[in-house]
Nucleic acid binder design. Sequence first.
DNA 1: TTTGATAAATTAACATTGTTAAGTATTTTT
DNA 2: AAAAATACTTAACAATGTTAATTTATCAAA
Lengths: 210, 210
Amino acid sequence: MGIAERKEKQKKDIKKMILDASMKLIIDEGFENITMRKIADLIEYSPTTVYLYFKDKDEIFFQLHELGFQKMLEMNRNLPEIKNPLMRLYKMGENYINFGMQNQEFYDIMFIQQAPMDTIEKMDDCDWALGDTAIGALQNLLQECMEKGLIQKAPVEAVAMAIWGMVHGLVSLAIRNRMGKMVPKENLLSTMHTSLNWLLGTIDNSFVKE
Amino acid sequence: MGIAERKEKQKKDIKKMILDASMKLIIDEGFENITMRKIADLIEYSPTTVYLYFKDKDEIFFQLHELGFQKMLEMNRNLPEIKNPLMRLYKMGENYINFGMQNQEFYDIMFIQQAPMDTIEKMDDCDWALGDTAIGALQNLLQECMEKGLIQKAPVEAVAMAIWGMVHGLVSLAIRNRMGKMVPKENLLSTMHTSLNWLLGTIDNSFVKE
DNA sequence: TTTGATAAATTAACATTGTTAAGTATTTTT
DNA sequence: AAAAATACTTAACAATGTTAATTTATCAAA
C-alpha cells in the first residue's frame, strides 16, 4: 500500500514543519512570545490546522524536548572513543555545559520548563525516560570510575546528583540571567568549566593529596 | 502632616494586600494560573485598581522576589552564631536547600523565573543587587575558610559558583520535576543533603586524605 | 466522468488574558 | 460650598489557546 505510506510521510513532514517553525520562533522571540497563530503563519496554514497534528501547545514543547535530547546525544557521540572512564567523565561534563550554553532554548525546554513534564504526566507511560537514562549513564560511568580506583568511593547516587546538579545549576543560572554582574558574560563559559574541573579535580585520585 | 503619612500607610497596606493575595494564589494554583483578575477578586477591588499600585504583572513578581530574599535572610539569622566558618558553610548550604524546598514558589520566582529579571532590566539601576550580595557572602565565607586552612585553596569565584550551582541545580531540578523516578519523593531532601555534604566533605581539610 | 465518502483545512466563535482609556465617586484643599 | 486632586470602576481592546461547524480537496467505486 504505497498510498497509506505516502500519507504517513506527508503527515510526518507537516509535523516536522510545525516543529521547525516552533523552534525558529522560540529562538527568534523566546518562549513567552511563541503563539499557535505565529506557528501557523510561519508554515502558511490556518491556526487550527496545527491542532490536527498536535493535541495542544504543550505537546509541541514536549516534542521539542525530545528533539533536544537527540541533539544532546549527537553531541556525546565522541564519548565512547575515550577509553579512560575518568577522562570520559570530564568530557561528559564539558559537553553538558557546552550543549546547554550553545542551545539555550533547547536546554530550557529539556530541563527548566514545566510544559513537557505536564505532557508526560498526562501520558499512560508517565515517566521521564529520557532524563532517567541520561542520569543512569552518569551513574554507570561513576561506578566504573570508582571500581577502577580513579575517583574516591562514595554513594553513587549522591555523587551523580551532585555533579548533575552542579552543571545544571550553572547552566540554568546563566540561562535565566542569574549570573548578573558576578561573572562578565565573556568569561561565563570558561568560569563554568573551571568550576566543573575544580569539582572533578577534588575527587580525582590522580591528584596528589597532601 | 499626619494626613500624608496616613495616606502613605494606606498605600503600603493595599500594596501588601496585593502581594499577599498574589502569593496565596501562586501557592494555591501555581504561577501559570495567576491572573490580575484573580488577584483583584481576592482583595475585593476591581482588576484595574491593581495597576494603580503596580506598573504591571512583572512588577508584582519582582516584589515577591524581593520578599523571598527577605524570607531567606531570616532563615539565615542563625548563621552568625556559628563561629567556625566551615561549619557555617555547611549550615549555609543546608539552609539554602531547605529554604528552596520549603518555599518552592518563592524560590522559583527568585532563581528560575524570568519575570523579575525583566523588571530589573527596565530599571535605571539595573543590576541584581540581592543576588550579588548573596553570592558575595558565600565568596567571603569561602575566603575565610581558605585563609584559616579549613578547606583546600582554590579560585574563590570558581568554587563559589560550583557550590551555588550545585545547590541551585538540585533544588531547581526538584522544583521543576526533573528528579523523576530517579529519587523517590520521600528521599529527595535527604539525598540532596547527602550530595551537599559529600561535596563539602571532599574539600574539608579535617577529613583525612589517604 | 460523475458520485459519494473520507480526509484535510479553514472560518467563526468563545472564554480568558494583560492592559489602557474614559468616566465616576470620593476626599482634600481652598 | 466650589474646585482640585485622588481613588476607584466600567467599558473596551487586542491577543491568546482552543473548540465546533463548515468548507474544500482527495480519491476509490459506480
